[in-house]
Design a protein around this nucleic acid. Structure first.
Length: 905
DNA sequence: CCTCTGCTGAGAGGA
């Protein structure tokens, strides 16, 4: 039986004498995890400390190593345990068949285990500083891709040509030619092909390539290069003339064996394929001509791998930093020795390799610590998402919008290159977070336990079209939780602190004040603050901060500033958190650059699905001739990309004179660093009175660098104060409440904006209660929590009134706080009315906005407590704003009460 | 209690 629970106290390891001799054991007090105990904990009716709640699990011998990692509160799983009666109590103990898994829901990747077994410090450094673009790695990846193609039956030459072409940009940045790369890949691939051919002649092989595997029991995930007759085959690009595979390679294969075991296999053979071994390299001991080395994986190795995995999970849960002493690796043979010593020295960390260099100042060490912890907390949240793949039922996943269940499989079509196109039909109208271009887990029923594969969503309407390596008969799609963003945040912070220049850090840490060059030029002649903002941005030696409240033309200001920089011959990076914001800013910039710079010197970097269709002509194609690809990027005077893409290997090779970051108040500090790390100077543009960064955990990431710097260096900031969007009556509340009354209409025409200005619209045709630019409609609250159907019905009537007065439905937007209410309203109103959450409305505007407050009783709840959300909602309309809600509930909060007074005036 | 965008990935190798 399996025992699972939470460690309920301190664990001690001791020795005992048994009939087999001296043995080690650890007695772990465990509070079993079962549904009953969870329910009781919630209700609080049964004391948690109740003795009967806790049992004891005895871990024997080698498993005591894992026991020593345990802290109270950690999760523990013991498989195949035996039940024992001791003094009238039921206890458990490991058996010869047992595995002990620490924090099983923390999925450790196979690569992590492989790095860790070499040296835990190597694992840490890899996580902290990432792997830069280098040729051996790109070549390795290419050989793997070709291997996969061969297994899927693709022609060798065709595969090599296509794969090299796909990586044109990377190869170009590395200065490689297609011919030289092709030649090298061919050498490795020939070894593979020969070996495959041998197999085909002698036995009936069954193959599967590139399989993504997740084990909920062992807490491991990874992607096997290939599986042959149920056993893992691991491909290596290097040479190995020894008799045995390298130990870390064995460990890697053993990880896949564990993963395969959970998926119904029973494997004890692993194959390592060293593809640089050629026929000429006859092994002296064995006489081998083949690149393949088979080895037997004993139970001991598999258990050892799980113990390694436990060390990683425990370290991550505790937030510890490895020192290298955990391993008996020899530092002098390590490729990363120098890096390791520098990082240890700069961050003042204990390390087996020793430290070199001067430690960072205390405030930087403290900063590193704080943000390292915050980012790792985010990472653990991503891991919680993985765990939900098996902890939640399909229906729960669907309710959380994280899965589409009930798909009907239609067909699979083979694609060129051995991949597959999968078609399925949606049988319900369920919503989900999934979008076209997303990478998902496509399964025939369960994302972990069933047949499952990583797939790309090509189309998502009534029919779902996916592409994948294997032909899964897909009936369900799950969001695939990715650590990529977290990885990049950590690397960005590392680069800012350890690679950033000293002057930059003086500014970031408030040790020096930003300086500005005198500029005697007028850029914008009808708006002083905009002109000042451009002047500051252009003249900044370090940084400038532009605070742009709603409708104040910050996008235009950015575009004008970039044009001025480009005219001075500078190379500029344009960035923002979302693809939408990047494309908006780029659109405005292209207008400014018309006639100033060739459009082929403006490049948009990002994925095809992320970039808006009309910006596609500017998108940097990754595939093609290396020289061409790299020229397009290097010659670009303006490069536009999301901050996340700025952290990619390709972008990290680029450098700029200036970085302009739009919507900077929505970015975490490390997120902002990913962009500004690439430039000499930076300009942040945003509004910290609107929505803050989206983070999973509450921590230091919730305050943006923009907001912190506005406080720290007010002299570097400019606030745009004239808005071009709202009728004056609409603007008043936001101006007073959020901008100290400093926001005002840019022109009398803006101030007087009215529905009557629109063609065919007559304000007098509206019911009297809606004739004012701001109106309030009182609705008795519906007691349900996140929806209000009365309110939705009332909103539908309001829309009819506006339509009757001549307004086009596409000029109306409806904003609600909850997604549930958004879909409730969508069911009541015609399709061409835009209905969305506040968060998604940020950055856009409409002629008429209707806000559904969906609040009853009290306004408790984070959604209402963050007033920045109301600021966004109330500042979207140009000519008319209608607030719909329960006045009693709204009046219970002073800010909302003031809002009511204003709306009803 | 809620809001929710990014990312192809995970692993590529060198004594």
């Amino acid at each position: 039986m399996h025992v699972r629970g939470t460690v309920a106290g301190e664990v001690e390891v001791r020795s005992v004498s048994t009939s087999y001799g001296e043995s080690e054991l650890a007695e772990v007090p465990l509070r079993p995890a079962d549904d009953a105990s969870t329910a009781r904990g919630d209700g609080g009716t049964v004391a948690v400390a109740d003795g009967r709640e806790t049992t004891t699990v005895t871990l024997w011998n080698k498993w005591t190593e894992s026991a020593a990692l345990l802290e109270p509160g950690m999760e523990l799983l013991v498989t195949n345990a035996k039940e024992e009666e001791y003094r009238g109590e039921t206890q458990y103990a490991t058996t010869g068949e047992s595995y002990v898994v620490v924090e099983p829901s923390f999925l450790v990747s196979v690569t992590s285990i492989r790095n860790w077994v070499e040296c835990p410090r190597l694992y840490y450094l890899n996580k902290l500083s990432g792997v830069p673009l280098n040729y051996p790695v790109v070549k390795g990846t290419l050989v793997h891709e070709v291997f996969g193609d061969l297994l899927r039956g693709r022609d060798l030459e065709e595969s090599i040509e296509a794969r090299v072409e796909e990586r044109g940009l990377q190869l170009g940045l590395l200065g490689e030619t297609p011919e030289a790369v092709t030649e090298e890949i061919r050498e490795n691939a020939t070894a593979i092909e020969g070996w495959l051919e041998q197999g085909r002649l002698t036995e009936d092989d069954s193959w599967r390539s590139e399989q993504l595997l997740i084990s909920e029991t062992f807490g491991i995930r990874g992607r096997a290069d290939a599986v042959r007759r149920g056993a893992p085959v691991e491909l290596k690009t290097g040479k190995n003339l020894k008799k045995e595979p390298r130990f870390k390679d064995k460990v890697q294969a053993a990880c896949y064996a564990l993963l395969l075991e959970e998926h119904g296999g029973d494997v004890d053979i692993g194959t390592l394929l060293y593809t640089k071994n050629s026929a000429l390299d006859r092994n002296e001991e064995t006489g081998d001509l083949t690149p393949a080395k088979e080895f037997t994986m004993g139970e001991g190795l598999l258990k050892y791998v799980v113990r390694l995995r436990n060390e990683i999970a425990a370290t991550e849960m505790a937030g510890d930093i490895p020192t290298g002493y955990e391993a008996d690796a020899k530092c002098e043979y390590c490729f990363e020795q120098d890096t390791c010593m520098v990082v240890s020295g700069r961050l003042d960390q204990e390390s087996k390799a020793g430290q070199i260099g001067q430690s960072l100042p205390d405030e930087e060490l403290e900063y590193f610590d704080r943000f390292y912890r915050a980012i790792e907390e985010e990472r653990r949240e991503v891991h919680r998402e993985y765990a939900k793949l098996w902890e939640q039922t399909a229906a729960e996943r669907a309710d959380d919008d994280r899965a589409l269940i009930d798909l009907e499989f239609v067909e699979k079509r083979p694609l060129e290159g051995g991949r597959w196109e999968l078609h399925a039909r949606r049988t319900g109208g369920a919503t989900s977070k999934l979008r076209e271009g997303d990478l998902v887990l496509a399964s025939d029923g369960h994302p972990v336990r069933g047949e499952s594969e990583l797939a790309m969503i090509e189309r998502l309407d009534d029919e779902v079209v996916l592409t994948a390596d294997e032909p899964v008969e897909v009936t369900r799609l799950d969001v695939y939780p990715s650590e990529l963003t977290t990885d990049r945040l950590l690397v960005a912070m590392h680069d800012a602190l350890l690679k950033g220049d000293e002057r930059r850090k003086d500014i970031l840490f408030g040790r020096a004040d930003p300086e500005f060059e005198e500029i005697d030029e007028t850029f914008i002649d009808n708006n002083d603050r905009q002109n000042e903002a451009v002047t500051k941005a252009v003249g900044a030696r370090d940084c400038a901060l532009i605070h742009g409240p709603p409708g104040t033309g910050k996008t235009y200001t950015i575009a004008r500033a970039i044009r001025a920089m480009v005219e001075r011959g500078e190379r500029v990076l344009l960035s923002a958190f979302t693809n939408r914001a990047v494309d908006n800013a780029l659109e405005a910039l292209l207008e400014q650059l018309d006639g100033v710079v060739d459009t082929d010197r403006v490049v948009r970097v990002g994925s095809e699905s992320g970039i808006r269709d009309d910006m596609e002509p500017y998108r940097l194609e990754r595939a093609g001739d290396p020289e061409d690809r790299v020229a397009e990027l290097q010659n670009a005077q303006v490069v536009a990309a999301t901050t996340s893409t700025c952290g990619s290997r390709v972008m990290k090779e680029q450098s700029f004179d200036a970085a302009l970051v739009d919507e900077a108040a929505q970015l975490t500090e490390p997120g902002t660093c990913a962009a500004i790390n690439l430039a000499e100077r930076f300009v942040l543009v945003g509004d910290h009175e609107q929505l803050p960064p989206v983070v999973r955990a509450e921590n230091d990431l919730t305050e943006s660098l923009f907001e912190r710097l506005v406080d720290c260096h007010p002299e570097a900031g400019v606030m745009l104060d004239r808005q071009y969007r709202m009728n004056q009556r609409i603007q008043v509340f936001a101006s007073n409440e959020f901008y100290d009354g400093r926001l005002r209409p840019a022109t009398p025409a803006v101030a007087a904006r009215d529905l009557d200005d629109l063609e065919g619209v007559s304000r007098d045709a509206l019911p009297e209660s809606l004739r004012d630019p701001v109106s309030f409609v009182d609705v008795d609250g519906d007691p349900s929590r996140y929806t209000d159907s009365d309110e939705a019905a009332r909103i539908a009537e309001l829309i009819e009134s506006y339509e009757a007065a001549g307004l086009d439905r596409t000029d109306i937007g409806v904003i609600a706080p909850f997604r549930a209410q958004v879909s409730e309203i969508s069911n009541h109103v015609p399709d061409d009315v835009a209905v969305d959450t506040v968060d998604r409305f940020q950055g856009s505007s409409q002629e008429v906005i209707v806000v559904s407050f969906t609040a009853t009783g009290s306004l408790e709840g984070p959604i209402f407590e963050d007033y920045r959300r109301i600021n966004v909602a109330l500042t979207r309309p140009k000519r008319a704003l209608v607030l719909v809600g329960d006045s009693t509930a709204l009046a219970s909060d002073p800010v909302y009460e003031r809002m009511l007074e204003w709306a009803s005036a």
